[in-house]
Design a protein around this nucleic acid. Sequence first.
DNA 1: GCGAGATAGTCCAAGTCGTGAACTAAGTAA
DNA 2: TTACTTAGTTCACGACTTGGACTATCTCGC
Lengths: 388, 388
Amino acid sequence: MRASNLSLVLGEVARTGPASRARVAAHTGLTKSSVSGLVTDLIHAGLLEESAPAAVERGRPATALTLAPDGAAGLGLEINVDYLAAVVTDLSGAPRYHHVVRRDNRGREVAEVVADVLEVARTATRSAASQGLPLAAACVAVPGLTVDGTVVRTPNLGWTQVELAAAIQEDTGLEVDLENEANVAALGEMWFGGHEQDGTPLRDFVHVSGEIGIGGGIVIDGQVFRGAHAGAGELGHVVVAPDGPRCACGGHGCLERMAGQQEILARAGVETMADLTRACEAGDQAALDAVADAGRYLGIALASVLTLLDPAAVVLGGAFATLAPWLSAATSASISHHTGATEPPPLMVSGLGSDAAVRGAAGTVVRRVIGDPAAYLARNTARRVGSS
Amino acid sequence: MRASNLSLVLGEVARTGPASRARVAAHTGLTKSSVSGLVTDLIHAGLLEESAPAAVERGRPATALTLAPDGAAGLGLEINVDYLAAVVTDLSGAPRYHHVVRRDNRGREVAEVVADVLEVARTATRSAASQGLPLAAACVAVPGLTVDGTVVRTPNLGWTQVELAAAIQEDTGLEVDLENEANVAALGEMWFGGHEQDGTPLRDFVHVSGEIGIGGGIVIDGQVFRGAHAGAGELGHVVVAPDGPRCACGGHGCLERMAGQQEILARAGVETMADLTRACEAGDQAALDAVADAGRYLGIALASVLTLLDPAAVVLGGAFATLAPWLSAATSASISHHTGATEPPPLMVSGLGSDAAVRGAAGTVVRRVIGDPAAYLARNTARRVGSS
DNA sequence: GCGAGATAGTCCAAGTCGTGAACTAAGTAA
DNA sequence: TTACTTAGTTCACGACTTGGACTATCTCGC
């Protein structure tokens, strides 16, 4: 009904940029009159704006419709092993505020870290308010499994059963959603990474995020693939060495055990990722071998991923993006060796690096507004009525 | 609009069996009056029927609504390596005609096999007509990759670029859809296999169909997962032995190369699957070892599948269903060893065996009618008008 | 066996929404 | 200036859903 048509119109403008009512009508299949009505509603709601008519060839010039720069905004937060981050995004997805706090959160009290997150969130909220941006909701990227606003566990932070969403919601007054870091990173990469294939944006791909652990985000037809219990995409624990050593997860021969950061650093004989990069740049053979080894294992895992999921591309993110120059050749060779495909999907390198997850989290919020503007308006007007 | 509401009502009856208008209204969220209107339309269209009122506790007894047994029917066809099959299914999914022709199709001319398929289809069509079942469309299960009505390739039949859909369509006058055998087998298993989990039908699972090759069907939220180029689910070519031998697909160490029928038979030292089953029943150690070995490899592949896709269950079909008694222990152990999960998803055994694919194909047709009855009616009345 | 209560289903007036045609607005090309 | 082209609005109509009133048909308790 009208709700879905509102989204259709708003989504069309969001996708294709400034558009006239007539073009929206043509693209969506609705009639000009319907679009006219829907557009006036969206303008009154403050989500759409008219801008100056563009010069044209023939006929009456079209009045361009654009997403209102102060229509609705999303707050993205990220809790990670060695940093916290916040981003505020407007309807178009453009970042309007960006802040990162570097600090190793391993071993710290959960309450302490949560307090830091609240502080970061408050500062971001104030910035949004001062810019006149109404926050629709917040989304938090967490490096672990989340269910219904609760962090079930984060392997590398050691959290279990933390009611994070409620805490942030109480403090900021915003609706809060928790998401797996690998999943929102994949979405961020899709929306803001600028990847294209045959001229159209990527909508089916696998994103590999190599932070301390190895995560994976599977995106199919523009949607994150979550599986039955929200546990899908755990690329780090695909079996790449059936007779391999025991992994922290309890399995044997997992990718993370064979090609995780700890393993690479140990084999290369260096301490930090920065050291490793320097060693590779200097042509250190041990470092290059260690990275190539990891690339080979990654290729084995990706070979299975490609045959099982048939994605259109693979995007290397996080640490793997940094190591790509010395890693991707080995990975590509390994993929070819294990799939026999003459033309495996392209191996792309992340354009956002570590920002992908926060930006994806913030983007999730505004995409949800675009996906159902009626719901956003209903909530918003209801709140106004309630508070008046 | 009305189209989606018609489907909502019809789908409710299809899911929950005989239901009163009132219950449909309560379940779907529509009002009683809307349901009344929609139901009269569906009855006039011949898709729904009123049956005798059931005895009740208090109040006016409800007139039960059931799917019309002769409302619309689907023709399912299957072309496989060593047989052809046809099934006609009524709206409820019940098979009303079932015919299998056993014959090894390897090495035969494509045209010959297609002629056989047409013959099988004609006989099925006649049977449907004599039962008063109006066929809505046909769906053909093919053991290979299909795109847009064309069989791109079938590894074990050696077909390439066969315009199968057009041929069948011309001969039968039905709309024809081609599907991958493993995918429709998974759907058939879901709809007609009787699998349940916690009292609700399975909707997220992986179906392993071990015929001559090893295929996989991934079902997520009741939908087949196809990937970007319709090539997803190729379980047979997941890497289970990174240093293993070359597979026919060009890769190395694929599951099919390590645990396919040929490999098992060779290792067990027998000629046919029937021999193998007998040997296992007799307790022959070589046979038992061969099957257990295959089970172990299958477990490695499934471990990766479980971590990547997080399904709620795994269903063993085809030859693996037959071998399950001697295979599943090894598979379960191997899964546990490689995932470390304390409670991996249950390993179920197919209830349909080799019938899963044809029944799934026929079911696809009627499910499509239920999913969009308005489209079916539009096509049907248009045809009637056109031919009158 | 008769009314009260309960449940199923229909009917109808009201309101919502998209459609399509006619119309107005605003430009270019000759 | 006229013809043509494209953008956008207005409005009557039709298709649907809704909600309430009304009818139908059963069980239960007296």
